[in-house]
Computed example of a mutant assay.
Amino acid sequence: MNKTNERFHNLLALFDTLRLEGSITQAELKDRMQLQASTVSYLVNDLRHKGLVVNSKKNIQSVKVGKPGQLLELDNEYAYFLGLYLEETFIDAHIIGIADVEIFSQRIPLEEGSPSELPNQIIKIIENLRSLYGNIRGVGIAVKSVVDRKGNISSFKRTYMATEGPRVWSIEGFSTIIRNAFEDLLIVIENDANCAATYCQAITKHIHGNFMTVLVNNNPFGIGCGLVVNDKLFRGGNGAAGEIFFTDRTIQNLIEQQKNGHAPTEIIRLLKDAIVKGIYMMDPEVVYLSGSLFSHTDDETHQEILQTFKGLPYPIHILVEAHYSLPAKGAVLLAVDEYISDLIATMDRR
């Protein structure tokens, strides 16, 4: 690796460490990144010069003898990012700073209308939030659709119950319409389960390099699977990796008919065979169950769900945050990653 590429990767690693830890001393960064103190100092100064790194106002807690070091952190106000999770009847919106501190969240009902009207509704939401938060530099959108390796989709499918039965909307050119409306904004569009896996990776601080996230939502019902391999989101050759439920007609009927009346434990039992097949195919270190199906269930129900997989030689954990939409937050992380990568690539060596 040449010096330019080495510096680029070190700056990215420094940014990632600061985002994961929240606040950390330069000495701790040296130990964490396994670099020389002088190298870390140069890297910190580069990001500080750009305005990304500031001294933290938090009090340091140290048991070491001597003067404690200065805590460093990312300046959350440097840039905001908007995360949107598109569901059938609503959009979860989250505005999060570059340091991964949330500024705003709202569940926005979707108006009924024709398929062609949905992109315009999304555009209006983005325009409205940009008018309130002018520091938004990028938008991450989590969609219930396969997204190709370049981040493009040819359609966005929206399944909902109409009077005549379940209907599926197909919106051609969805991603192009959104991108063309905001040429000055970074737009990242990704499958919702992949976004959820990205967020699980962040909140567990990358402790597992190979894992599987099963996303199960209710009201409206939806399922998906995101894979992380060698600490990287694995999309496959065409962006469809993790579509373990696609070939099961029984599960597809649940989606199309929007069976929201099933109890959480019953739904997991219906999904169990497909999940287990996916687990043995991937051989992950750990499996995370996430999504709104688990957000409002009690500990007893969580234990009943986990008992469904009793005897399986893989650890399975339920990972939820009631207040947050995991796909929306994961979409923000993906947008931030692309934004900071582009930013660091243009930084001159001082």
Rank of each mutant, 00 (worst) to 15 (best):
280 Y>G: 09
294 F>Y: 07
239 G>Q: 04
343 L>K: 12
51 G>I: 02
114 S>G: 07
318 I>R: 07
37 A>R: 00
244 I>Y: 13
310 K>I: 15
271 L>R: 09
347 M>H: 08
131 S>F: 09
186 L>W: 08
67 K>R: 13
90 F>V: 01
251 I>P: 04
257 Q>D: 12
325 S>T: 02
307 Q>W: 07
224 G>R: 11
8 F>I: 01
291 G>R: 02
228 V>C: 05
135 N>I: 04
320 V>P: 00
114 S>W: 15
62 S>N: 01
185 L>M: 02
236 G>L: 10
285 E>L: 12
94 H>G: 08
128 N>G: 05
256 E>P: 06
248 D>G: 07
109 P>M: 11
175 S>P: 07
278 G>D: 06
241 A>E: 11
254 L>E: 14
289 L>C: 08
138 G>L: 01
282 M>V: 08
52 L>C: 04
196 A>W: 04
153 I>H: 08
268 I>P: 00
310 K>L: 14
76 N>L: 05
170 S>Q: 11
303 Q>T: 05
155 S>E: 15
104 F>Y: 11
241 A>P: 01
295 S>Q: 10
233 L>Y: 11
145 S>W: 07
280 Y>E: 14
171 I>P: 05
262 H>P: 06
261 G>N: 10
101 V>W: 07
98 I>P: 02
48 R>H: 10
304 E>H: 14
147 V>T: 12
210 N>Y: 08
162 A>M: 09
297 T>E: 09
318 I>F: 00
276 V>S: 03
152 N>P: 10
168 V>A: 14
96 I>W: 01
61 Q>C: 03
342 D>V: 12
275 I>H: 05
249 R>D: 00
201 Q>D: 02
333 L>F: 08
208 H>L: 04
348 D>W: 09
68 P>A: 03
177 I>Q: 06
51 G>P: 04
227 L>Q: 08
46 D>M: 04
114 S>K: 15
320 V>K: 08
185 L>N: 03
254 L>K: 03
282 M>D: 15
305 I>E: 03
18 L>A: 01
237 G>K: 12
123 I>S: 13
194 N>W: 01
46 D>H: 11
323 H>E: 14
88 E>Y: 13
180 N>G: 03
54 V>C: 02
66 G>D: 00
251 I>T: 03
29 L>Y: 03
235 R>V: 13
308 T>A: 10
41 S>E: 11
227 L>C: 05
143 V>N: 10
171 I>F: 15
42 Y>F: 14
227 L>Y: 07
183 E>F: 05
299 D>Y: 11
312 L>Y: 00
91 I>N: 11
264 P>F: 02
181 A>N: 07
302 H>E: 09
285 E>M: 13
153 I>T: 15
237 G>N: 11
314 Y>Q: 04
329 K>Q: 07
294 F>G: 01
41 S>D: 11
52 L>T: 00
142 A>M: 09
219 N>K: 04
58 K>A: 06
162 A>K: 13
243 E>I: 10
139 V>F: 06
247 T>Q: 15
228 V>H: 09
32 R>V: 01
335 A>G: 05
82 L>C: 09
246 F>H: 07
344 I>A: 03
307 Q>C: 10
81 F>D: 01
23 S>I: 02
99 A>E: 10
123 I>L: 06
22 G>Y: 01
199 Y>P: 00
224 G>N: 13
319 L>D: 00
327 P>K: 07
75 D>H: 01
302 H>N: 09
227 L>I: 12
41 S>M: 02
141 I>P: 06
225 C>Y: 09
198 T>D: 02
32 R>F: 02
27 A>M: 07
